[in-house]
């Protein structure tokens, strides 16, 4: 390992800007300080891979509205509760008497819904390719068990289109640390067309510090080459998890999706198929987006245009205790990670 570490420390070739797309990688890198041992010629940039951070205002507003509707209960992962829409978060809705339940897995919605059949339970279905199969499973099980009071408010997104957007609209990235757990489902080959189109290496990486270092080494070595490498073969295969892909396909289809900071990206989302519309809770056309604090630069942070510390509010007005944008709320958000780990 030291050999790779040394190489990365002493690297003196062409400057390398590497984007870690996934929020879990941002968290792992910030936590173990990998960025601080790299040569100044290698710069790590955080990307748009925190599902909560890229969720637009209109989606949060719709969740708040549902939570405050009599007879409705919003069910969510904890990350989303503190994110503010145009004026309120789900936590605010709760304080106003709205119904919000936090769960560890979407599957818990089945028990909740079965216990209170007179209420409608709406799961806040955010996430990427990794989480989509879990929502498919929830619907499968609800249909099997005849549970009729479950709905989804979807804001599901897919990685290749947004990476494509970053390459085409922003550029300046010399390598991608491809999202490991997304790749478990999609397979590592999904990144090959992008690698070849832009002549940029993609390396699918695990999350341990040694795995990340190896992947960075591979990216630097492959600079300028359109290669897609899988350095997480213990769980990632070239083709991914076929069963999971099929179950996602059964319930969902590609759609255009709005991303914070990037606007509408064609084909970058997943929505319920027409034959399963009975499960939808009004997810269509939730595109409007604006930052809760007008000075918040989340939009630029998410695309790697600026680093979190370049936001004038960072650490002054905006801290994890009083977050001004989603990137400081989510524990996978770049601003949160840079703040708690003092990452430069």
């Amino acid at each position: 390992m030291t050999k790779y570490q040394e190489y990365l420390q002493n690297y003196d070739g062409e400057p390398m800007r590497i984007m870690e797309v996934c929020g879990t990688h941002t968290a792992a890198i910030s936590h173990c300080g990998i960025h601080s041992i790299l040569s100044p010629k290698i710069k790590l940039i955080s990307g748009p891979g925190c599902p909560v951070c890229v969720t637009v205002t209109a989606y949060i507003d719709r969740l708040v509205e549902l939570a405050l509707t009599p007879g409705c209960v919003v069910v969510s992962f904890g990350d989303l509760l503190r994110v503010r829409g145009s004026s309120r978060s789900l936590n605010d809705a709760k304080a106003l008497g709205g119904q919000v339940r936090m769960v560890y897995t979407p599957m818990d919605t089945l028990k909740l819904a079965a216990a209170e059949p007179d209420k409608t339970f709406i799961f806040a279905a955010v996430g990427f390719e990794t989480t989509a199969p879990v929502y498919a499973m929830l619907l499968e099980e609800a249909l099997r068990a005849g549970i009729q009071n479950i709905r989804l408010l979807t804001s599901l997104k897919t990685m290749p289109p947004v990476i494509d957007w970053v390459c085409a609209n922003q550029g300046g990235i010399d390598g991608f640390l491809a999202p490991g757990h997304v790749s478990v489902i999609t397979g590592s080959e999904i990144f090959r067309p992008l690698a070849e189109r832009y002549s940029i290496p993609f390396v699918v990486s695990g999350f341990e510090p040694e795995q990340i270092l190896l992947s960075l080494y591979a990216l630097v070595k492959c600079r300028g080459m359109g290669k897609a490498l899988n350095l997480y073969p213990s769980v990632v295969t070239p083709g991914g998890n076929h069963t999971a892909q099929q179950s996602v396909k059964k319930y969902f289809m590609p759609c255009d999706a709005s991303w914070r900071g990037m606007g509408l990206i064609p084909g970058s989302g997943l929505c319920l198929r027409p034959e399963y519309q009975q499960f939808d809770s009004g997810s269509v056309a939730l595109t409007e987006d604006h930052d809760a604090n007008p000075a918040c630069c989340c939009a630029k942070v998410l695309t790697g245009a600026i680093g979190p510390r370049q936001c004038p509010l960072f650490g002054k007005v905006c801290t994890p205790q009083s977050p001004q944008g989603a990137c400081m709320v989510s524990t996978e958000g770049s601003c949160y990670q840079y703040y708690v780990n003092k990452r430069e």
Partner: peptide
């Protein structure tokens, strides 16, 4: 490997070999 209460994949033992080849 478990995500959101759901098993996504079985960890394979092939890892070592395929990484050293790469």
């Amino acid at each position: 490997l478990v995500h959101a209460g759901c098993i996504l994949q079985v960890l394979s033992e092939e890892e070592g070999n395929s990484i050293s080849a790469l």
